[in-house]
Structure formats: C-alpha cells, structure tokens
Amino acid sequence: MIKNPDNLVIQQTSGNYYVPSVIRETLVQLCNKAGVEYRGTHVFRHTHAVLLLESGASLKYVAARLGHEKITTTADYLHITEKIEKDELDKFAAHVLE
C-alpha cells in the first residue's frame, strides 16, 4: 500500500482519495449488515474526541486537534461517558481522602 502524503485514514491501496459517496455507501452497507443505524461520517470525529478525553487528554488539546478556536465549541461537541465520569470521581475521591 502506498502511503498518502495527507495521512488519510481511509484511502485506496494506491494512496488515492476515495470519492465521498463511496465511503458513505460502504458505511451504510456495513451498518445495515451490523443492524445499527447509519449516523454519517462525522461521528468518527466525535468518537475520536471522546476517546482522547477518556485517555486523559486535556480539553484544550482536543480543541486544538479538532481545529476549534474556542474550547467551548469542543465542550458542546462532547458528552460525558461512563469512563470519564468514573475517572473524574476517582480523582475527586483521591483528593478528598489525602
């Protein structure tokens, strides 16, 4: 496989771009096969942001990575997962019990 200079995640083995409709149609087929609702390709961006937060990345870093000028944009973009909730409560408990 040839690496695309743009570091694309989804690319042809030749390194060329896929037409967006090909990606969308393939994802729709995969979602149908898996029995889940297709929610568009933008959900990958949201998932990436949430996984970054779950891994401990700061909101400021996630905002910069997503290209948001304000962290409030990023904060509105995300939701609190069970892991984030547990991690934050563990931090609070550790602080209180010091």
Rank of each mutant, 00 (worst) to 15 (best):
Glu98Phe: 07
Asp76Cys: 09
Asp87Phe: 10
Ile23Gln: 02
Phe44Arg: 07
Glu98His: 10
Lys33Thr: 01
Val43Tyr: 08
Ala75Glu: 04
Val43Ser: 02
Arg45Pro: 11
Ala57Thr: 09
Glu25Tyr: 03
Leu27Arg: 02
Thr73Leu: 01
Ala64Cys: 08
Pro20His: 06
Tyr18Asp: 02
Thr74Ile: 02
Gln11Glu: 10
Thr26Leu: 12
Glu82Ile: 03
Ile10Leu: 07
Gln12Ser: 03
Gly15Asn: 02
Asn16Gln: 11
Arg39Glu: 14
Ile23Ala: 03
Ala49Leu: 03
Leu78Ile: 15
Asp87Tyr: 09
Ala93Asn: 10
Thr81Ser: 13
Thr73Val: 13
Leu66His: 04
Lys86Arg: 13
Glu54Phe: 06
Asn16Val: 04
Ser14Thr: 14
Ile10Arg: 04
Glu82Tyr: 04
Val36Leu: 07
Tyr38Met: 01
Ile2Lys: 15
Asp87Asn: 14
Leu8Val: 01
Thr41Cys: 11
Gly67Leu: 11
Thr72Ser: 12
Gly67Ala: 05
Tyr18Phe: 15
Thr47Arg: 06
Ile71Met: 15
Val28Tyr: 06
Thr47Tyr: 05
Glu98Trp: 05
Val36Trp: 04
Glu85Leu: 09
Ser14Pro: 00
Pro20Arg: 04
Thr26Met: 09
Ser55Val: 10
Ala49Asp: 04
Ala94Ile: 09
Thr26Ser: 13
Arg24Asp: 01
Glu82Asp: 14
Ala63Gly: 08
His46Ala: 03
Asp90Met: 12
Val28Lys: 13
His68Ile: 09
Tyr18Ala: 00
Asp87Glu: 03
Glu98Met: 05
Glu25Cys: 03
Arg24Ile: 09
